[in-house]
């Protein structure tokens, strides 16, 4: 199981802050994202948008990174702090 979090505008558009997703051996972020889209087809456009950033265990990651059970993923829009 992988915990997936969403933040800011993306969280609001999906109407979801956090969701658990089943994971399998050698899954990548792409596969976790595909599983989410399979469950919620309306999320496809939002999750695959070019500017969506991804973090794994609090560090920016590429979507080709592998994911293990217990990992925390996060998807969010470009940051605007400071």
């Amino acid at each position: 199981m992988v915990k997936v979090k969403f933040f800011a505008a993306l969280r609001e558009r999906l109407n979801c802050a956090e969701i658990d997703v089943e994971s399998q051996h050698n899954d990548t972020v792409v596969q976790i994202r595909e599983r989410l889209v399979a469950q919620y087809p309306a999320w496809q456009h939002e999750l695959l948008a070019n500017d969506v950033l991804c973090a794994k265990n609090f560090t920016f990651t590429d979507v080709t990174a592998t994911v293990q059970s217990g990992d925390e993923l996060a998807f969010f829009p470009p940051v605007t702090g400071g």
Binding site: F7, A8, A9, A55, F60, A74, F76, P77, P78, V79, T80, G81, G82
Partner: peptide, 13 residues
């Protein structure tokens, strides 16, 4: 500051 603005996960509303 330059990196904080593009790397630190804050969002303003």
């Amino acid at each position: 500051m330059d990196y904080l603005k593009t790397q630190a996960p804050f969002w303003k509303r």
